[in-house]
């Protein structure tokens, strides 16, 4: 059974849940895999800690929680501090390099790849698309989801009229991720 457990962490307002939802949707609807998304649900305000758990599997997913993720997608230092120690041995950390500084918390043997996603998003015109850059980055590095699947999932997840911008954000992250995966 091929099963990948992912934890996405950041701040409320960064689009953490949407990021995780697009990953889950691409896997479950466009790649025919099973995917379960659990979001930490609370009276959370903008700017407070926010995280989501996604499990992707070729078989039925019973236990829905992610305890030791294979992949961490991190968009804030708090999220890194909280979740880095839970990473599975040999796991992968994908992080926004201007928002997260790695330190000794990172388990030995972990593979960590950063991306200046906020800067990319700003260059594309809107800082808001940071999370979509991260989706592309995730797909590019892990190769877990095809670009087409993610593209479709983004298209039916973002507000009408913002598709082009989001596509550019997705491509930017995806390209960067593919190159980074090949070189790092």
């Amino acid at each position: 059974m091929a099963k990948t457990e992912i934890r996405v962490g950041g701040l409320g307002g960064q689009g953490v849940i949407l990021n995780a939802s697009i990953i889950g949707k691409a896997a479950s609807i466009y790649e025919g895999k099973h995917a379960t998304l659990i979001q930490a649900f609370g009276p959370e305000a903008r700017g407070s800690a926010c995280s989501a758990q996604v499990t992707i599997s070729t078989e039925d997913i019973a236990y829905p929680y992610v305890k030791h993720p294979d992949v961490l997608v991190l968009m804030s230092q708090d999220a890194y501090n909280q979740f880095a120690p839970s990473l599975k041995p040999g796991g992968l950390v994908l992080f926004e390099e201007e928002l997260v500084t790695l330190d000794g918390r990172l388990p030995e043997g972990a593979r960590a790849i950063g991306i200046p996603a906020t800067r990319f998003a700003e260059e594309l015109g809107r800082r808001l698309v940071l999370n979509i850059v991260m989706v592309g980055f995730f797909a590019g590095v892990t190769g877990l989801l095809s670009f087409e699947s993610v593209q479709k999932a983004v298209k039916d997840s973002v507000p009408k009229g913002t598709e082009d911008l989001n596509m550019r954000a997705l491509e930017k992250g995806f390209e960067y991720g593919r190159e980074a995966a090949a070189t790092k």
Binding site: S28, H34, A35, L37, I38
Partner: peptide
């Protein structure tokens, strides 16, 4: 329950 209510799947 809260988990099933807030869990997203196909």
């Amino acid at each position: 329950d809260e988990v099933v209510g807030h869990m997203t799947e196909r």
